[in-house]
């Protein structure tokens, strides 16, 4: 079955991203297809490459990036939500005249249409948030 996953909270403050991660991993292990993981609201902060959690803690952005790489997942950060919160990929940073970008490899930035499209494409849409 095809699942779309929506993550509406950032890493660490709220458990939503952890739950979404565990769910996604379990769904993949059961042979389901993840058509897209869409990060919205503060969820876009899951895509930062600048997070440096303590060594004995989980690295949420890296874990998502690795899960994405291992399973060819489409990890999408909403562009409108990301720009508000200072999450920019190289292309956007250049376009906005910023001297730094901070999106981790394996995530991409795109529009809200990708959320609706995922909802249309998937058999089930599951939202994790606050």
């Amino acid at each position: 079955m095809k699942f779309a996953i929506v993550v509406n909270e950032g890493p660490y403050t709220h458990q939503a991203s952890d739950t979404a991660f565990q769910f996604t991993r379990a769904a993949l292990a059961k042979g389901h297809e993840i058509v897209r993981v869409f990060f919205y609201h503060d969820g876009v902060n899951n895509g930062t490459k600048l997070a440096v959690p303590p060594q004995d803690d989980r690295h949420i952005p890296n874990n998502w990036a690795k899960l994405g790489k291992d399973n060819q997942l489409d990890l999408v950060l909403c562009i409108a939500a990301a720009q508000r919160r200072g999450i920019l990929d190289e292309k956007e940073a250049k376009r906005q005249g910023k001297d730094a970008s901070n999106v981790i490899d394996g995530f991409r930035i795109s529009g809200l249409g990708q959320l609706i499209e995922a909802g249309i494409e998937a058999d089930r849409t599951v939202t994790f948030g606050d």
């Binding site: 699942f3 769910f23 379990a26 769904a27 059961k30 389901h32 089930r124 849409t125 939202t127 606050d130």
Partner: peptide, 20 residues
């Protein structure tokens, strides 16, 4: 249920409503 059970519940029902 465990996370596998969560996945099964999503699959068994027609849609998911998260009470956020």
């Amino acid at each position: 249920v465990d996370y596998d059970g969560f996945v099964d519940l999503v699959a068994q029902n027609d849609a998911v409503n998260s009470w956020l």
